[in-house]
Structure formats: C-alpha cells, structure tokens
Design a binder for these strands. Structure first.
Lengths: 233, 233
DNA sequence: GGCACCGGTTACGGAACTGTGACAGGGTAA
DNA sequence: TTACCCTGTCACAGTTCCGTAACCGGTGCC
C-alpha cells in the first residue's frame, strides 16, 4: 500500500528494516548509497523517507535539504536514522526538515511504530463529512443528498471523499490520481474529468452549473467550501 | 500564537518547560495533576499536548485514550514525556495515539525542536502569502483583495505568486519568463507586460497608479514591499 | 527640441482546456 | 453463459485563455 524509501548503507540493517517494513505491508524502495537518492525519490514518489545521516558517499542532511527544496517532494515526511546522538545533531536534523530523529541503536518495533504514526489518519474529522445538503457517511459508504441516498460506484466515492475531506482546496488532476487511483496508476489524467462529470450528474441539481464540484481552469478541481456563494459575474 | 497544554507533575520540570516554551512564543496552559486534564483540554482547545505518563493521580495513557475518543479533541497531537524507556512502553504510547514519545532525561532544546516539527508548515513556504490587503491562498488557488476573491487565470496566478513570494525584489522580464513560463519558453518578453497589465486591472484600485505591481524602468517589475508608502511627489 | 527607447494598452487569431457522449474491455452475479 | 455494471479512453465541440503585433504616449538623452 504505502511506499517507503530507505537509504541506509549498512547492509545488515538495511535488510533487517526492509524485511520488517515489508512484513508490515509497506512497499520498500531504496538504496545503500546516498548518490542518486533524490532521483530515486523523484522516480518513486515514496510516502515516507527513512534516511541515514552518515552515508559513505554523501550527507543525509544535504539530501534532506534538497528534498525540502524540491516542490514535488517537499511534503514527504523524513525520518532520520543515525548514530549521531548529540543535542546539536538532533536539533539540526529536526530543524533542517526532518520529521523524526531516531538514534542508533534503536528498537526496530519502535521504528515501525513511529512510521505508523506518520501514516495514521489524523483522526481528522468526523466519520461523516457534511457540506450543505450533502453528507458523506464513511462507515456506511453512503452519500446522501438532502437525506436521500445517492448510489455511487467505488471510484466515484473515493474521489468525492478525497475532495470533500478538504473543502475549498484545489487539487490538480495528478494529485487526485495519486490520492484516489494510487501511485502505480496507469491512467490518463482525463479520466478524472470523466469521473467529475459522473459525480456532477449524480449530485448536482443542474450539472451545467455545478455548486459542489468546481472546475478551476488550468489547475484542476475542488469541492466548494460553502454551499452558498452564487456564481457572481 | 500557538497554545500548548502541559501536564507534568514534577514542579521543577514543569517550570523549566513552561519557561522555555513561552520563550519560544507559545502560550502554555497546564496542570501538575492528571485529574481534570481532559476538561482543561476541552476548555482551552490547545494546539498540542505534552503529557507525562506517570502522574501521581492518573495515567497519561488513559488521558490520551480519552482525548482520542473525544470528537473535538481527537485531532490534537500528543507528545509523551516519560521515564518509561522500555520497548513495549514506547510502542504502547505511540500505538495508543501518541504522536511522539520522549524518554527522560532529554534535551530541552530537542523537545522544543520536536514541538516545532508539529507546527511546521508543510515545508515549501507559507501556504498563504499576505501583503497589505492582498492575500494569495495557495491551496485554494485563490487571491483575495480586502477579503473579496479576485478571479485570476492560471498564468496570472503563477506570475503574481512568484512576485509576491519575494516582495520588493525587482525581476527582469527574462527572470519572470524563466520562473513562470519555464525554461523551454518560446515567448516574447513583452508578454510579461501584458500580464502585468491584466493583473493591475484586476487588483489595483487605480491601475494608472499601481500600488502593488511596480514598474522599474529599464529593469523590470517588482511587487511592492509595503502596502503603505503612498506615492510621494 | 528632436529622437530613440521604453512601457501601457488594445485587438485578434490560434492554442489549450474542459464538457460530453459513445465505446471497448473486464469483472461479476444470476 | 449471458447480461449487466464499472472502468478507462477517445474524439469532438464550445469556450476560455494565451501570446503577439501594433499603436500610443511619455521619458530621458543628446
């Protein structure tokens, strides 16, 4: 499901972590060198990065800085793994953009637990999303419009769920494909358009004048923040 | 700015942390007992909770569980602070809903750094740029002037975003073309002029006397640093 | 004062983008 | 097996947006 990039030069430790992460259900990509790490990230788009600081050929902190400077990678959590235990080292790692800092030696199961913390849903919000007349009931996998259930297919539901989880935020087609279809997608971005169309036909009173699913020309789509806000000229 | 709830029974440690957190600019609310902690959270709605596990009158893990079960508090990050260092203790704390687990003794500045990680904007700069009356909301792809949304096209938005991200800095037309249109551009530099014009028409009260988008004759354009600074004669 | 240069403005054709209907392939249930 | 539904793609059309050329007025240099 989730993809983790692992950069660790110690072959034994690499294998140990790879094995344990895979046992937890994560996909592991990685390398035992720091060279080409950023290129690896760009290619693989991991959901989290586990990064050794002291690598034989390069510096983990430097890699971290480059990740944070790259617009498409900057959001990825980085978990440092290092023998450097001093106060300044710890602070430096966290200040430079690290999201966690684990000092060797460490408990493998604690590392796993910390990885899971990063993937844990922020318990963000109720299990029922509600915007205007529209309700999305996660546990029941049901969408209600003015109380009436609307039949959605699986993909339609996931797309709507993602858009409704952050009302007002505009997503590009690529972001939606990543979030709804998954990283290993083999899908045209125009597919998103078609699903937006289908959702509009099912949800909007007047599909030609959408009040829920807004197009943002040149960028992508968003779920309208307020149900009100009539289209001004 | 941000409010932190601190639950720690050791009076010396409590004072030390309170002092250091306040020095960092955080508001600190808290108690040296576990009783009434959840009520405190409900009343104060902190942005983050620092929680000792071994309290004389109650159990920090229990408090954590109750926070996670409360719909209005469930999203608040919890940072455990404890002398329990065993593998199972660490895993338990993280599994039960903790976002971080710090073992005593610890470096105060590391704790501060970890707190800051939780408040850090997802890296690449602020998500809302603000200059005077003008706001550029990146996730919403929206520009607001005195609170009123202004409709911009994709290219207008990108150009404004770039200029606003470095207020006061003057860019040549070539720099703007590189940054906004991309290196492989096949565009005349006069195109920039036209977009500046269009932005002025949409943003400036008096397009003939621009207060946001300044021309710098012979060089290029810049976004005015301060909204004030009336045009002196 | 004349002249070259620079930036502001307008209008227009073409490119790019989105909405939409139709369709093929695959999976599933009766 | 058959029929249906879901999924993803394509092609076409309408609309919007983009970029350019051209014209204009102002500025500063000589």
């Amino acid at each position: 499901m989730k993809k983790i990039a692992l950069i660790e030069d110690d072959a034994d430790l690499y294998s140990l972590l790879e094995y344990n992460l895979q046992k937890e259900g994560y996909t592991v990509v990685g390398a035992q060198t720091g060279k080409g790490a950023v290129e690896l990230f760009r290619r693989e788009r991991p959901d989290l990065i586990i990064l050794d600081i002291m690598l034989p050929d390069s510096d983990g902190l430097e890699i971290c800085k480059r990740v944070r400077a790259h617009p498409d990678l900057a959001h990825i959590p980085i978990l440092f793994l290092t023998a450097r235990a001093s106060e300044t080292d710890r602070i430096l790692g966290l200040e430079l953009g690290g999201n966690d800092y684990i000092v060797k030696p460490f408990f493998v199961r604690e590392l796993i637990a910390r990885v899971r913390v990063h993937f844990r849903e922020p318990a963000n919000g109720a299990s029922v999303l509600k915007v205007g007349d529209l309700e999305l009931d996660r546990p029941r996998r049901q969408v209600r419009l003015r109380g009436r259930p609307v039949a959605l297919t699986a993909t339609e539901f996931r797309l709507l769920e993602y858009l409704m989880s952050r009302p007002g935020v505009v997503f590009t087609r690529d972001q939606l494909l990543d979030a709804v279809w998954g990283h290993d997608r083999a899908v045209t971005d125009r597919t998103v358009d078609v699903y937006i169309l289908r959702l509009r036909q099912k949800l909007e009173d007047d599909p030609a004048n959408p009040s829920f699913l807004r197009s943002v020309r040149g960028f992508g789509y968003s779920f309208a923040e307020q149900t009100a806000a009539p289209a001004e000229v």
